[in-house]
Simulated assay, not measured.
Amino acid sequence: MHHVRNAREDEIDALTGIGLRAWAQAMGPIGGTEAMLQNALRAFGDFVRSSWVKITVIEEGGVPAGWASREALDEQITDFWIDPDHQRRGLGSELLQAVEEEVRQHGFDEIKLETHAHNTDAVSFFEKNGYRVNWLSIAYAPKLDQDVQSVGMSKQLVAPAPEGYGVEF
């Protein structure tokens, strides 16, 4: 059974591990080094430790299986990670729907995110859930010593009001 809830402070290590494993899987097409992995471990640990109150968790069988965050509590998903051992079971879609509802309840009409363009699993997942690519950028990543392509994606959460005057027939 799946359950979506707020993160707890005592889950820092578990959430850090989920983020790191999912990040390592997503980095496959780009490549990386052991130093990058260690930097990512530190970054995930620091983020989860300082921002656990901004993290939404999905658990499977009572165990955290993924998490998402909106660092500024706005319409931007900044982190979305499902443990590779728990993927393709509907957890990502369920977590995404919960985050979309949070964003909608906070008065935003649109939700946004970005990911690297070669993370085809993530791009495909978000497209299947109604997101569209809005932009593509290429920037040099010093830690990777290469250019990395990123895509920005968004989804309308509220149907736009009809334009014009009067009633349409």
Rank of each mutant, 00 (worst) to 15 (best):
Q87M: 08
A72F: 06
E59Q: 10
I77M: 14
R70C: 13
D109F: 06
Q87Y: 04
D109E: 13
G61S: 09
L96Q: 06
S69E: 08
I77N: 11
A68V: 03
Q97A: 10
A65N: 09
A65Q: 08
A65P: 10
R88H: 11
H86K: 15
L73Y: 08
G92R: 09
D83F: 11
P64S: 12
S69K: 09
D85S: 14
I82R: 08
A68S: 15
F80S: 08
E94I: 05
P84L: 12
G90M: 06
E60V: 09
A68H: 04
H106F: 01
V99H: 01
E110K: 14
R89A: 05
G62V: 07
G61W: 03
I77K: 11
V63F: 06
G61H: 07
G62M: 08
G62P: 02
W81G: 06
H86I: 02
A65G: 15
E110R: 14
D83A: 10
Q87N: 07
L91D: 05
V103S: 00
D83L: 09
A72R: 15
D74L: 07
V57I: 10
E94Q: 12
E59V: 04
G92C: 05
E59S: 15
Q76K: 13
L91T: 10
R89Q: 14
Q97S: 09
G92I: 06
E94L: 13
R70F: 02
F108M: 06
R104H: 08
G61D: 10
Q97F: 02
I82C: 07
V99S: 00
H106I: 00
P64W: 12
E71Y: 05
A98I: 01
Q76G: 03
R89P: 02
S69M: 10
V103K: 00
E75T: 05
H106K: 06
E94Y: 02
E100L: 04
A72D: 15
I82H: 07
R70A: 05
V103A: 00
D74F: 12
E102C: 04
D83W: 10
I58P: 00
D74S: 15
E100R: 07
S93A: 12
L96M: 11
G90Q: 10
I82S: 12
I58C: 09
E60M: 08
L95F: 02
E71G: 07
E59H: 06
Q97R: 15
H86S: 14
Q87R: 15
E110L: 10
D109P: 00
Q97V: 03
I58N: 00
Q97W: 03
E75F: 11
E110M: 03
G92Y: 07
G66A: 13
G92P: 02
I58R: 00
E100C: 07
R70H: 06
E110G: 00
Q87G: 07
V63A: 15
H106N: 07
A65M: 12
E59Y: 07
E101K: 13
A98D: 03
F80P: 01
R104F: 04
E59K: 05
T56Y: 01
Q97D: 07
R89I: 02
D83I: 10
R104E: 03
L95V: 04
Q87P: 05
D83M: 10
D79T: 12
V57G: 01
D83Y: 08
I82P: 10
P84A: 11
V103E: 00
G66S: 08
